[in-house]
């Protein structure tokens, strides 16, 4: 194939951010939203996810491996940019910077979040249920960390959706890119409301 590794990796990075990582994010936020209907509903939903067949295979194929690639290649992308919003403070240039900043915040947050929930559960140190999240979020510091982490994540996803559509040549004309800006910002707002409500449902 004439296309270089650069081209392939960058396109793969863009694809994996939406499929499957972005789709998993939507499922994850949806399942967690059961918390707003009370501890019982949440525990039932989590229990269903916990007992999916081939769970570990699904987790590795649809979450861990794509996420790791997206994160590591994403860090490389972050470090090859020389941001210049100070001189050229255009809207898209700000979004370019925010995409990188929220990407790094999301990575740090996810490392902590996966350790605190999935790994500790795998080590048998905690149960996966409403009380686990309630305990974590009983500290105001953790609430702030979760708010920052989750808002970064949903912004990174929504704005990433915009650049995914450009990178794959779905939105070409300036008008289509403007419409998709509005669309992805609505996605951001909707997911932000959903996830913030979920966080407060655990408190």
């Amino acid at each position: 194939m004439a296309g270089s590794r650069d081209f392939f990796n960058r396109r793969l990075h863009s694809l994996l951010g939406v499929i499957p990582v972005g789709l998993f994010l939507l499922v994850h936020l949806t399942v967690n939203h059961f918390a707003t209907r009370g501890a019982g509903s949440f525990n039932k939903a989590v229990n269903f996810m916990e007992n999916l067949p081939f769970l570990i295979v699904l987790e590795f194929l649809l979450i861990y491996l794509p996420l790791l690639f997206h994160a590591i290649y994403g860090l490389y992308i972050v470090f090859t940019a020389k941001n210049n919003v100070g001189r050229l403070s255009y809207f898209r240039n700000w979004m370019f910077l925010l995409q990188r900043v929220t990407g790094v915040i999301t990575l740090i947050f996810l490392a902590w979040h996966v350790w605190e929930t999935r790994i500790r559960y795998a080590l048998g140190q905690t149960e996966l249920n409403y009380d686990m999240m309630h305990d974590i979020l009983s500290s105001p510091v953790m609430v702030v960390i979760y708010l920052i982490g989750v808002l970064s994540t949903v912004f990174h996803f929504a704005n990433g959706l915009w650049s995914f559509m450009v990178s794959w040549g779905l939105t070409v004309s300036p008008r289509s890119q403007r419409v998709s800006t509005y669309f992805t910002m609505i996605v951001f707002l909707a997911l932000a409301i959903i996830s913030v409500r979920t966080i407060f449902a655990f408190i």
Partner: peptide, 22 residues
């Protein structure tokens, strides 16, 4: 097209869109 699919080509664009503004 194959030339711009090489190293440092099209894929290195990060969509900051400063170019079109400038």
């Amino acid at each position: 097209l194959n030339a711009i699919m090489g190293e440092g080509g099209l894929a290195s664009c990060g969509n900051s869109q400063n170019c079109v503004q400038s």
